[in-house]
């Protein structure tokens, strides 16, 4: 299987601080790859490099979409989303709070709409396929609202939704961009157990039905272990383990990183 994204020797330095140090891993389409590690391990920095927030100090990020290859570290932020089709959600929710739920999903599809409307000029004059494209976009948005169980809230301002619904809406919005790679930064943070279980189902359906590759940052080990196909473990910016959930759980370096030397006497003293 050809990898969806190949991260090779990724390094990110901020002045004297090395947040990510020579990290390499691959993720495959139709798989969930979890990135775990203690706080400050550099997980979000990896995401920021992939989505163009930061320009990596060193390393290569190759995304294969369709039959093309994209070197993400050389692309401007919005092109990573528009051409290489990488979508992302945030640890702290970043919806367009003042816009309605439906509008949030339509913004995510605006590239197709702008082309169809002849960059608004023709659309205003009623020429071209704008009407059809807009109806298609609304249909797609509604289909996603069904899937995340928000169809009844379509016309409410996104900022008024309860926390758990906002999290689901953010994922639906990311999916409306039609991504090849979906990067989720702690999607289960702040969710109660039933909501968390629902989220797991949603992620599995995105993986299996839509065949989208998912990169997942998550602290909740029960989520990570139950839904991921592969796990990459970071500690102090370096990769310390990479493998299936079972392999990673048994890895002594991972146990040390999570529990610490002092608190794991049987590991330290033999």
């Amino acid at each position: 299987m050809t990898p969806l994204i190949e991260v090779e020797h990724l390094t990110m330095r901020f002045g004297g601080l090395t947040a990510v140090d020579d990290v390499s891993f691959t993720a495959f389409p139709g798989q969930i790859t979890a990135i775990i590690g203690p706080n400050g391990a550099g997980k979000t920095t990896v995401f920021n490099c992939i989505t163009g927030f930061y320009r990596p100090t060193e390393g290569r990020l190759t995304l294969r979409g369709g039959d093309r290859e994209y070197l993400l570290e050389r692309m401007v932020g919005f092109r990573i989303a528009a051409r290489a089709r990488v979508a992302r959600t945030f640890q702290n929710i970043r919806l367009f709070a003042g816009m309605t739920v439906l509008e949030n999903l339509l913004v995510a599809q605006h590239n197709a709409l702008m082309r169809a409307s002849g960059y608004t000029l023709l659309g205003v004059l009623g020429i071209g396929a704008y009407g059809r494209a807009e109806r298609g976009a609304v249909e797609r948005a509604r289909a996603w609202l069904e899937r995340v169980k928000l169809i009844g809230q379509a016309d409410r301002p996104a900022g008024e939704l309860p926390y758990g619904s906002q999290r689901r809406l953010e994922i639906a919005r990311a999916m409306c961009t039609g991504p090849a790679l979906l990067c989720l930064d702690e999607p289960a943070a702040g969710l109660n157990p039933p909501e968390s279980a629902e989220l797991n189902e949603l992620l599995i359906s995105i993986r299996d039905q839509d065949r989208v590759g998912i990169l997942l940052i998550e602290h909740d080990m029960s989520v990570v272990m139950s839904i991921s196909d592969r796990v990459v473990v970071l500690d102090y910016g370096r990769k310390i383990a990479d493998g299936t959930p079972a392999e990673v759980r048994a890895n002594p370096a991972v146990i040390r990183a999570y529990l610490g030397d002092e608190e794991a006497p049987e590991a330290a003293h033999g």
């Binding site: 989505t51 989303a81 367009f96 816009m99 605006h110």
Partner: peptide, 16 residues
């Protein structure tokens, strides 16, 4: 309106 509320997020959704 999206750019006005959150420019970074808009660009992550592919808005130029």
């Amino acid at each position: 309106r999206a750019c006005e509320q959150d420019m970074k997020m808009a660009s992550l959704l592919g808005v130029n």
